[in-house]
Simulated scan of single mutants.
Amino acid sequence: MLSITARNLASALRGSLVGTSSRVAAVRCLHGTEESAEEFDKRYEKYFSRDGIDGWEIRKGMNDLLGMDLVPSPKIIEAGLRATRRVNDIALAIRWLEGCKDKCGDQKATLYPYLLEKITPTLQELGIPTIEELGYDKPELALKSVYDA
């Protein structure tokens, strides 16, 4: 599959270097249209809110989101949590929360509490504990640092 994609890309680039305008237009169309943040949020909310969505599709959507260079909005996080509750997969809900926390990166001290504040009503409604309530925020077998007094 990779070789087919590489071959198609090479032929498209070759055509654009020669000056064939139809191939240049085809390459430009590959980028698609830009969508606003609201449209992006609605698309993923709709994806997670579908009737009949199963665990595999939920995992696929979550994996796609966590692979992007962004932190999911609270609305998307809530939609993902509701989807995990519909399929009755608490482990997936916890992993979703861990993934969203990890996506906060170096802004974890400010961004993650904001996200928790926004999604706490949904967590309570669905009966899903936070990572901190479960004690998953600290490693179980961690040793005290020799540098701590």
Rank of each mutant, 00 (worst) to 15 (best):
G80M: 02
L123E: 09
L70S: 01
Y147K: 15
D69L: 04
L123F: 02
M1G: 15
T5M: 15
D64I: 14
L81P: 05
R85C: 11
N63F: 03
D106W: 07
I58L: 10
Y44C: 03
T33P: 07
L66I: 06
P113D: 05
F40H: 11
K138Q: 15
K144C: 03
E38H: 12
I76Y: 00
K103P: 01
G61N: 03
L115S: 06
P72M: 03
R28K: 12
E132M: 09
W96I: 01
W56R: 15
P121G: 08
L66V: 01
D69A: 05
V87G: 00
E140P: 09
F48L: 04
G80S: 06
R59E: 07
P113K: 02
R14L: 08
D64T: 12
A10T: 15
Y112I: 04
R43P: 10
E140S: 15
A79S: 13
Q107W: 13
C104R: 02
A10G: 08
L111C: 04
I90V: 14
E35D: 02
N8T: 05
E117R: 12
S21G: 10
A25N: 14
L17P: 05
K144Y: 02
V146A: 12
A109Y: 04
E39F: 03
R95G: 06
L13F: 02
K144W: 09
G32I: 02
G32N: 07
T33W: 00
V27R: 10
K101Q: 13
T33F: 00
Y114G: 11
G67A: 11
K103A: 05
T5C: 13
S21P: 06
L70M: 09
S22L: 06
S49E: 04
Y147P: 10
T20P: 04
E57D: 08
D89E: 08
K75M: 04
W96H: 03
T110C: 03
I76F: 03
Y44G: 08
